[in-house]
Structure formats: C-alpha cells, structure tokens
Amino acid sequence: MVLEQLVNAVSYSMLLFLLAVGLSVTLGLLRVVNLTHGSYYLLGGYVGLSVVRWTHNFLLATGAGAATTAALAALMFWGLLRRFLGQESAQVLITFGSLFIVADGCLAIWGGQTYTIPPPPGLSSSLLLAGAHIPTYLLLLIAVGATGAAAVYWVFERTRVGAMVRAAVDDRELAEACGVDVRALSFGVFTLGGAIAGLAGVLGGPVIGVYPGADLAVLLLALVIVVVGGAGSMLGALLGSLVIGFVTTYGSLYFPEIASGIVYLAMVLVILFRPQGLVPARGLDQT
C-alpha cells in the first residue's frame, strides 16, 4: 500500500513536471502568463486519442499530440503574442480568448464525454513489486518524466543555448547587447513548452483522462506549481511538481473533503512564507 501510494505520487509529479516546466521557463523568459497552456494539454490529449484509435500506435500518438500543440504554440506566438510582450492585459485577453476557442473547438470535434486513452499494449497490466501491485504504465510515466527532467537539465545547464536562455532570464537587455536574439529564443522556448505540454496531454490520457474542463484544471495546477516552485528554473518546476504531486496524492487520501482546495492551501502557505517560491524567481513580484 505504501509503495503503491508512493508510485502514484511520484508518477503524478512527473506528469505535472512535464506540464509545468514549459510554463515556468516561458514565464521566466517572456514574463507572460500563458493562459492557453492548459489548452495545449487538452488538445494534445484529444489528438493523441484519435491517433491511437486510428493507428493503435501510442508512440505515434504522442508525436502527433506534441506536433499539433507545437504548431498551435508557434502560431500563437508568431501571430499574436510577439507584438504584445510586456503588455499584461493584452496577453490575458489573447491567451484567454485562445483558451475559449481551443476548448470550444475540441468540444465541437470530440464532444463532451470523458475519454481515457488506452495505454500501449504491454503496459496495461501491473507488476508485483515488494508485495504491491504497481501499474506498469505509472512506471513508464516516471521513466519519461525523469528522462525529460534530465534532458531539460542538460540543455539548460550544459549547452550554449541553455546558457543564453538563463542569461535572458537574468537580464534580457544585456543579453541582447551580447548578440543573443532573445526573441528567437523566446519563440523556441514557447513552442517547445507547448510541445511538451501536448506530450503530457497524451501521456496523461490513460491516467487523468481527457475531458472538457481539463484545460482549466491543468492550467491552474501548472500555475500553482510555478508559483510554489519559482518561475524561470527547471529545478523550481521539478520541486514544485513534487510538492504539489505529493500534496495532492496524500491529501486526497487523508483529507478527501477538501481535496480540491488543499493544493491552493499549500500554495497560499508557500507564498506567505517564501513569496518567491522554493527556488527564488527573478523579478516576478513586480508587475
């Protein structure tokens, strides 16, 4: 039982990490709250669902989901957001409007029921581990999440591009004066973040499901994680995801009455005592 809950918590945290890391870096780099981020999850999930239905190929579904949301993110950035960097109210309108459009589009195409994506064959059973039944799919989630975290870490900390992103988060003006094309970087980060969120949508399909309203639920979770963990850093996203993942899993176990509110309670506490998040963000407490 203990091991099962632990695996639940860790795998959920990994899924949350994939969701939140794109938003965190986008926020740190672009200082824009992308309210459409949850919609990427939703759209990715629906596209993955359809692809699995047609081709029975889960891997292809994840690729399709990620590609679709990458395209949407690229379109949104290049077509709309690019001109309104630094203008908060405009960004809220744009990203919220897009949220509505994507949500409605998905509703029109896929309808209103809740779907779960069937996990890939071979991963739909459970393993007997130390006396506990562990669904193998959750192990896959943990593996993918950990790999993703490692990959993001490597890019962030060990490559020149990652250093440029960190520099731009530190001091955008100075980075530009050093020849770093922050706008192209922002475009790349935004699109990649969208792709990862779409990937998370497909991966989360077998566990959380895909349903109208998932976009808002996911968005709120991701925002909470970013606030708790601190924006602009991968470590912050990871820590935040772990905290929220564990609080949610064990919280709904021991305090089911306020399960929906417990995450926010945790967030309020963190903000009160450590307003910058666990891994201090840079300059986001100024408007």
Partner: peptide, 20 residues
C-alpha cells in the same frame, strides 16, 4: 560595458564570456 558592473548573475564566468 554598462554602469554598475552588469553581469549575468546566475551564469558562471565561463558562461558569461561564452554566450557573448
């Protein structure tokens, strides 16, 4: 070379130089 010794605080010395 901006006023006030402006560097990228979270980057290492090598990275500060490397990206430029």
């Amino acid at each position: 070379v901006a006023q006030g010794r402006r560097v990228f605080p979270s980057l290492s010395v090598a990275e500060n130089l490397g990206i430029a």
